[in-house]
Design a protein around this nucleic acid. Structure first.
Lengths: 220, 220, 220, 220
DNA sequence: GATGAATGAGGGTTCATTCAT
DNA sequence: CATGAATGAACCCTCATTCAT
C-alpha cells in the first residue's frame, strides 16, 4: 500500500478562503488525500463526509457532485493509493527480496496500517473495496516478487521441490502480521530476519542436518 | 479464535413472547453468541445494540443491565471466544505443527474471519479490544506452538542457526493472510502446504542443493 | 424577564411541507421562541429536542446544526429573552418604582412564571444557565431601580438610616414570591400595594406612631 | 421547609447486607430521607427510582410496593418534611419575627434550597406537589408569623394603615429571593437586616422625616 | 414481603444524503 | 459549479414501571 498521502501541491499552501479551484486539477488529489488520511486515522465506518469536507476544505455538496457516495469516494481514494515497489536485480533472490521488501516498506506512510484495516473493514460492506483489497493488498508485491523469482529461477537459485508460491507469500504474510496483529512498524531488521530466516533456508535444498542442542531460542 | 457461536441451548426453542427472565445460566452465552455472530457479519462499528437485542431476543435495556456499554459487551463476547487448540506429541515437529494448525482451524466457525476483522476494527477505538487483539489473535497459537517447539528441540529436530521465532510465526502469518486478505477458508490442503513447504525446509540444515530447471511454478 | 415569545413572522404561515431553508433572519427567533414557549410549559428537563423540532417545524438535525447541545440552545433562548424595563422620572421615588414595576410586569408574557422555574431548574445542571439566572432574574430590575434610587437621593427622598439595598430588593422579592410560590399573575393592584405598603413607609423617617386597635387585618 | 434529612436512626448504622427490615418502622423514614436528599441534589426530574433504591438500600420493586409512582413517593417525602418553627413571645414584634426567622432558618438543612427548586419543578407536573408547594413553602411561616402579629396587635405595636399582609410576606419573600435567585445561604445577618431595615420601619407610623444628604449607599 | 431481572418508550446526538441558492 | 442549510433514519443509552421468584 502507499504512495504518499499528505502532500498535495494543489493549493493547500495558499490560504485562499473559499470558492477556489474546481475539481479538475490537483484538487481531486487533495480531496482523496484527505480521505486517505482520515481512513487511516478513524477507519471506514467512522469516516464521515463532514470530516472529509472539513479536512479537504470543501463542502459536502461539492463532494457529492464528484462522487456518488461515501463508498465510491473511499474506493477512489484507495484505488489511487498505489504502493511503489521497485524490483531491481541485485544478483541473488535473497538480495532481490530484501530490496523488494525494503522498497515496499519505504513507500509506506505512517498511515498504512490504518489504511489496511480500513480496507478490511470497508470491504465487508462494499464490493468494490473487496476487490481493491485483493488487488492492492497483495498483488503489487506479488507481481514484483514474481519477477524476482523468475530471475532467480533463471539463475538456478530455486531448488527442486520448493513451493514457490509459499516463497512469495511468506515474507508478505509475515510483514502483514507484524503490522496488523502486533502493531509493529516494520523496518530493516524485520526484513533482514525474514529474508535470512524464512526465505533463504527455503533455497537450500535438502541434505543432512548437523546441529547442537542449544540451537534455538524462542524470543519470548 | 473460536469455540462455538450459534448454539443457544437456553430457551431459544421456547416461543414465549415476553418476559423470559433467564439470565444466569446459558442466557449469557446466548447473548454473547449473538454478539459474536453479528460482529462477524457486520463488524464492530455497524453492530448496533438494537441488532444484538433483536438477535438475542432481549431488550436493549436488558443488555445494558448486564453490560455497561456496547464496547464492554463486545469485549466480553470476544474474550469468551477462545480458540481451542490441542497440542499433542505426534513424534516430530512437522507433524506436531500440522496437528496444531488443524486443531486450530477446526475450532473456527464460519464467522472467524469476520471476527478477526471486527477485532482489528474495534481495537482502533477501544483499548480493551486492542489488548484482546494481541492476546487472542496470536498468543494462543503461539503458546501451543512453543510447546511443540520445545519438544522438537529436545528431540534434536532444530538445526543450529534456525530462527525459531520465525518458525512459529510463519504458519500463523500465512494462515492469517489467506484468511484476511485472500478471503479463503483455510483447510487441510493449505496446512499441508505450509508445513511441508514453509516449515519443514527450515528444519533441514544447510547443505548442498541439487536442482533441476523447471523446479518452480508460481500458481498465478 | 421577557420580550415576546410567540411572534414568528418568518414563514410559519406558509404551509410548505419540507425544505424551508430559512435560517438567517427571523427563523432563529422563531426557533428560540419555540424553545421559550416549551421551557415555560414543561420546564428544562422535560423539554426535548423532539418537542422543539416539532414546535419550530424543523428537524432535530437542523437544530443541532445551529446549536451544539440542548443546553446551549436553552441558554441562547433565555439569553435573548430580555426583560424590557423603562425607568422614567415620575417625580418621586414611589411613583418611579410604581412605574418601574409596572413596566417590568408589562413585558411579561404569560410564560414568564414557567421560564423562571425553568431557569432555576436548569441552572442546577448548567453553569451558563446559573450565570443567566443571576443576571436576568435580578440584575435588570435592580439596575433600573438603582437609577431611580439615585434620583430619589438627589431629591432628598431617602431618610437617614434607610437600608437602600433592602429598598431595592423588597419589591422585587415580593413580586417573585407571588409569582413563584403563590402562582399569582401579578398586576397593578399588587404593585400598588407593594409601593404603598412596603416601600413608601420606609421613606418616612422614624417618628411617633399613633394607632388604633383594629388597624391590621391579615387576609387569610 | 425542613426538619432533617439525613439522620435515619432506623438501621443505617447496622451493616446488615440484605433482607433487613420491612417498611413499617423507621425504614419508611429512611427511604423518604433518601428521596429528600436526592431531590435536593438533582431535582425532581433527574431523580430516578434507581437512585432512590440505591441510596435507600432497597430495590425498586420494594419501593413500588409501598408507593404507586415516583410522583407519590416524592409527594410523601416532601409532605413529611415539615419546617420546624417555634413562635415565642419575645416581647415585641421585631424580636418575635427575628426569632421566628432564625428558628425557621435553623431548621434548614443544607439541602433546602435544592428542595425548594425541586418543589417548584415538580409542581409543574404533579398536582399534589403543586398543593404542597403552596402549603409547605409559605403557610408554616405565615402561620407562625400571624400568631406573632396577633400578639403585636394586642400589644399595640401595629400602627394604623399598615398593610399587615405585606408585613408578613416581606421577610419571607426576601429570604426566599436570597436563597433561590442569589444562591445565598441566609444567616443571622440577613435576618437582622430584614427585621431592622424592612420590618421595623413599617411599624413606625407616618411622620416628618429629617435626613442628611449622604443617607443611602447601595451596596453594589 | 423483598428482590433481581426485564422491558417499551423515549432522549440527546450523529450521519449520509439532498435541496435551493 | 460550489456551497449553506435541511432532514429522515438511526444509534447509544436511560427511565419508570412490571414480572416472577
Amino acid at each position: 500500500m502507499s504512495g504518499g498521502i499528505g502532500g498535495s501541491p494543489g493549493r493547500a499552501a495558499a490560504g485562499k478562503l473559499r470558492k477556489v479551484p474546481l475539481s479538475n486539477p490537483g484538487r481531486r488529489r487533495e480531496v482523496l488525500g484527505a480521505v486517505l488520511a482520515l481512513l487511516a486515522e478513524v477507519g471506514y465506518e467512522r469516516l464521515t463526509m463532514d470530516l472529509v469536507a472539513q479536512r479537504a476544505r470543501a463542502s459536502k455538496a461539492t463532494l457529492y457532485q464528484r462522487w456518488p457516495s461515501k463508498a465510491q469516494l473511499v474506493v477512489d481514494a484507495l484505488a489511487e493509493h498505489q504502493p511503489v515497489i521497485t524490483d531491481e536485480d541485485r544478483g541473488s533472490l535473497p538480495e532481490d527480496l530484501r530490496h523488494l521488501l525494503m522498497s515496499w516498506l519505504a513507500s509506506w506512510t505512517e498511515h498504512d496500517r490504518g489504511l489496511m484495516i480500513a480496507l478490511l473493514e470497508g470491504s465487508r460492506t462494499d464490493a468494490d473495496l473487496a476487490r481493491l483489497r485483493r488487488e492492492r493488498l497483495s498483488r503489487p508485491v506479488r507481481q514484483a516478487a514474481e519477477s524476482a523469482l523468475a530471475r532467480a529461477d533463471r539463475r538456478g537459485e530455486i531448488p527442486a521441490g520448493v513451493d514457490a508460491e509459499l516463497l512469495l507469500e511468506t515474507p508478505f504474510a509475515l510483514v502483514l502480521m507484524h503490522v496488523l496483529v502486533l502493531d509493529e512498524v516494520p523496518g530493516r531488521d524485520l526484513v533482514d530476519r525474514i529474508v535470512e530466516g524464512a526465505v533463504a533456508p527455503l533455497l537450500r535444498g535438502s541434505g543432512p542436518r548437523p546441529r547442537g542442542p542449544e540451537a534455538w531460542t524462542p524470543r519470548r
